[in-house]
Amino acid sequence: MEQLLDILREMHPETDFERETRLVDDGVLASFDIVMLITRIEEEFDVVIPAKDIVPEHFNSAKALYALIERIAEQDD
């Protein structure tokens, strides 16, 4: 989780990612950021987020995003 927060803070130092729950809805994370983020997540976690999971619900908070990463990492077939 801390690793993810670091990535996020690097992108938007001014945002409190631990508390924010409307990152996409409020326009903090735009499509540009999301793609950058996904690229970073693949680098750091070796997890590829599929296109169908790129929806606001998963990116609105750091917590939700981390949950998504864990879910994908655990998935087998």
């Binding site: 499509s31 999301i34 793609v35 996904i38 690229t39 590829v48 987020i49 599929p50 296109a51 790129i54």
Partner: peptide, 11 residues
């Protein structure tokens, strides 16, 4: 475009 082109393409 985001949902069906931009994100799928970038991943």
């Amino acid at each position: 475009f985001k949902r069906y082109v931009y994100y799928p393409l970038s991943v």
